[in-house]
Simulated scan of single mutants.
Amino acid sequence: MGSNLKNALIAFLTPLPSILFYTSFLNNHPFLSPISSWCNHHPLLLANALFFFNIDVLFWLISLIQSSNWMIDVYWTVIPVMLLHYFQTHPASQFDLWRSRVAVALTWVWAVRLTHNYFRREKWQWGAREDWRFTDMAQQYGKNWWWISFFAVYLIQQVFLIGVCLPLYIIHTVNKPCNIWDIVAIFVCLSGIIIAYFSDTQLHTFVTKNEKLKEEGKPMVANLDEGLWYYSRHPNYFGEQLWWWGLGIFGWNLGFTWAFVGALVNSLCLAYVTILVERKMLKMEYRVEAYKMYQKRTSVWVPWFKWSLNQVPKEKTG
């Protein structure tokens, strides 16, 4: 069995423990009777428990066997959908049907877009490589990485993913009629999905052309400065943040002021990732000068017009 097929099989089998447990709970299986009352009354705690044992522990053990943390990237696009349907079908749920259907549709569109972008970037391979940040951390921590990775890769993902998905939980715990703020939330979410899609597509086209130039022995283009990337250095990050903040509006509208906590934490994390990405760009000799000028003239996240050269502060000499 080839590694691609083997990894695909692993990816499809690993969520089965949670799925089987939850379906057994919904069907009132006798062996779950001692804890069925707890599962009924604590949907959010149950979601965290399933995440901990199925994602944190099982995914981590698989990563130790394979010496790669590739699978968490694939499931970043899948877990929100699984959580959404879990919150929707839990016996304790109550919700406005229209708002729930909109949340389902939006989340599936977001997930399909992000999943497509992931596999397009990875040339349709399962587990060919892990995120470069995990590889850097593995080199940094050396022999201790095997246990540090449990916290730095998996446990932290539980905080992020459960956090950003809290609005999906709120949507399915409050039965309140829709209002104008739901329309605002839909607009923000859709805007984020559209901006992220076009940003990632433009980036993919740029990278593909550069790979072809490299194969032909021709000079590569130093920097992507077209389309949405003309107005922002990271429009894909901006689009992704709009999506999560749009979900937060749904939760806030239902009376939960803390619904933005997950989006805020995720934005702070992406701010740090932005710094890491730009440091990486500046380590590539062929693009250093072009990227430095790009940094000076172009907005970091929010798409905006270029600053003119006269507005760029000159570096001191001597």
Score class of each variant (00 low, 15 high):
residue 78 V to K: 11
residue 190 L to V: 13
residue 315 E to R: 05
residue 136 D to T: 15
residue 259 A to G: 03
residue 218 K to N: 13
residue 77 T to K: 13
residue 93 S to H: 11
residue 130 E to T: 04
residue 9 L to W: 09
residue 154 Y to N: 12
residue 28 N to Q: 12
residue 196 A to F: 00
residue 84 L to S: 05
residue 127 G to E: 07
residue 254 L to V: 00
residue 204 H to K: 07
residue 121 R to W: 13
residue 212 K to H: 15
residue 2 G to A: 14
residue 70 W to P: 14
residue 102 V to P: 02
residue 225 D to L: 06
residue 183 I to H: 03
residue 293 M to P: 00
residue 71 M to C: 10
residue 39 C to N: 06
residue 305 F to P: 05
residue 160 F to N: 14
residue 128 A to H: 06
residue 69 N to V: 10
residue 87 F to Y: 15
residue 47 A to S: 14
residue 97 L to N: 01
residue 92 A to D: 10
residue 150 F to D: 12
residue 169 Y to P: 01
residue 257 T to H: 08
residue 93 S to A: 15
residue 246 G to Y: 01
residue 260 F to Q: 07
residue 251 G to W: 03
residue 221 V to G: 01
residue 55 I to T: 12
residue 105 A to V: 04
residue 145 W to D: 12
residue 114 L to W: 08
residue 176 K to W: 05
residue 226 E to V: 03
residue 192 G to P: 02
residue 125 Q to S: 13
residue 39 C to I: 05
residue 9 L to G: 15
residue 56 D to Y: 04
residue 171 I to Q: 11
residue 79 I to C: 14
residue 225 D to R: 07
residue 228 L to P: 00
residue 184 V to I: 15
residue 115 T to S: 13
residue 299 S to R: 03
residue 105 A to D: 11
residue 220 M to V: 04
residue 274 T to K: 08
residue 149 S to E: 08
residue 313 P to Y: 05
residue 44 L to Y: 13
residue 278 E to M: 10
residue 143 K to H: 12
residue 40 N to D: 06
residue 258 W to M: 00
residue 18 S to N: 00
residue 7 N to F: 14
residue 90 H to L: 04
residue 293 M to F: 10
residue 237 Y to D: 05
residue 117 N to V: 01
residue 281 M to D: 08
residue 194 I to N: 07
residue 307 W to V: 06
residue 250 F to C: 10
residue 275 I to Q: 07
residue 93 S to R: 15
residue 95 F to P: 05
residue 252 W to P: 04
residue 285 E to D: 15
residue 108 W to P: 01
residue 268 L to G: 14
residue 21 F to P: 15
residue 77 T to M: 10
residue 217 G to Q: 01
residue 230 Y to P: 11
residue 282 L to I: 07
residue 83 L to Y: 15
residue 300 V to P: 03
residue 62 I to L: 09
residue 235 P to Y: 04
residue 282 L to G: 12
residue 298 T to W: 08
residue 177 P to F: 06
residue 108 W to R: 00
residue 261 V to R: 00
residue 254 L to A: 04
residue 255 G to K: 00
residue 116 H to V: 00
residue 257 T to N: 09
residue 31 F to A: 13
residue 239 G to F: 07
residue 122 E to P: 00
residue 43 P to R: 04
residue 159 V to G: 10
residue 40 N to M: 01
residue 236 N to F: 03
residue 220 M to L: 07
residue 149 S to D: 07
residue 195 I to V: 11
residue 87 F to A: 13
residue 298 T to Q: 01
residue 59 F to K: 05
residue 223 N to A: 13
residue 280 K to L: 08
residue 158 Q to E: 14
residue 139 Q to Y: 01
residue 183 I to R: 08
residue 216 E to Y: 02
residue 101 R to T: 01
residue 104 V to S: 14
residue 28 N to D: 15
residue 138 A to C: 04
residue 191 S to L: 03
residue 44 L to T: 10
residue 111 A to C: 07
residue 201 T to W: 04
residue 141 Y to F: 11
residue 306 K to F: 08
residue 111 A to K: 00
residue 245 W to A: 11
residue 211 E to P: 03
residue 148 I to E: 11
residue 24 S to W: 04
residue 9 L to K: 09
residue 17 P to E: 15
residue 214 K to V: 00
residue 170 I to V: 14
residue 175 N to E: 10
